[in-house]
Design a protein around this nucleic acid. Structure first.
Lengths: 189, 189
DNA sequence: ACATAACTGTACCGATCGGTCACTCTTGTC
DNA sequence: GACAAGAGTGACCGATCGGTACAGTTATGT
């Protein structure tokens, strides 16, 4: 179990795929950009698809860790954390290399719902949904699942809108909407 | 000016690109699926990129026409049309070949914001935004632009969520959120 | 009947695709 | 120092990529 080289490959492949797309990034380009020989890659992963799945696993881990931690840093209560997510998103959007959501991109290039890459992307979104349901439940909202899904719709919308770049403040527009939705859910309690 | 053959090509190329993705659809596959010779294609379009741009133009025209018409059929007032959009989206999502938004996919495969395909995808979203601003203005909301952008965030979120397929009722979740946002905007008047 | 334009099939270009091959170099362990 | 194992190299595979050349066929308008 020697993790270093393999992990280095996955991390660098992640960057390449994220910046250039999956189909547009060939294995030869990965050799150039990672400095790792093709033979070594194919020792760790039997196919390009396997490598992509490993990349998505890493991305899922990093992204969710980052988002959850940032939400906790920005706000104390579950209710406020849900809203603070959109401030975290704004930080992400304004990063220099921001190119949208890796999982939306993956499902755009591997569209068939039965494809492993598509399914794994769906899993990522499912785990986000579960976490958000926890928060809305802890916050004591009635109909916590619906509110959680609504907030996630705003999140996904903000992510693609920020990438399309036809508007600024996608994150803050979404935040304002989220505040309204949360306030409305509180009135009903 | 003989439109038939060229239009037939663009229409069939649209279907192929929509179902398989842009990079994953080669020109030889287009020859097979459209029955049009490669020589003819390259007489009408100098490059594959030009063909894609023509496809996106057609898609923009068809999609916006369809959406606007459907919204008008489903509701009379601008206010109700904005909400009825989500019922129209639900119809779209439940179509057999639904594979998400063509422009989001295009911007996923041509990520550079300066790329013509990316820019044209952004134009599509911009035109939707303009139309929605018109409706919110006609409906008499204060801050019509913000409400329009918020509703569009819900729309984009529903589109990608419906494609990822990890949840059902993305359209109806978005509709419920839209009703809340609209009601909230009315209270402030 | 005839010119013209649109269209077709096929073969081809260099480059790149995902993936494999035999082989060499390095490294840690005994 | 012997030796197995992993990481490395670079050439190579058939297939496909976007795009072109060329010669032949079909349709149209006069």
């Amino acid at each position: 179990m020697r993790p270093t080289k393999r992990d280095e490959l996955v991390q660098k492949a992640l960057n390449a795929f994220y910046q250039n797309g999956f189909n547009a990034t060939g294995m030869d380009m990965l050799v150039r950009e990672t400095g790792i020989s093709k033979t070594s890659m194919y020792k760790h992963f039997r196919t390009k698809e396997d490598l992509i799945l490993a990349v998505l696993r890493l991305r899922d881990e990093h992204f969710r860790n980052w988002l959850y931690r940032r939400m906790e840093e920005l706000a104390k209560t579950p209710r406020d954390q849900l809203i603070a997510m959109f401030d975290a998103l704004e930080e992400w959007f304004s990063e220099p290399g921001y190119k949208g959501c890796m999982f939306i991109k993956a499902s755009s290039e591997y569209q068939d719902a039965s494809h492993p890459i598509h399914k794994q992307s769906a899993d990522h979104k499912r785990m986000l949904e579960r976490y958000f349901c926890e928060l809305t439940r802890k916050a004591g909202f009635s109909n916590p699942e619906i509110l959680a899904r609504q907030l996630l719709l705003l999140k996904e919308g903000a992510i693609v809108t920020a990438h399309l770049g036809h508007t600024d403040n996608a994150a803050q527009d979404a935040k304002a909407a989220a505040i309204t939705l949360v306030a409305n859910a509180e009135q009903r309690v």
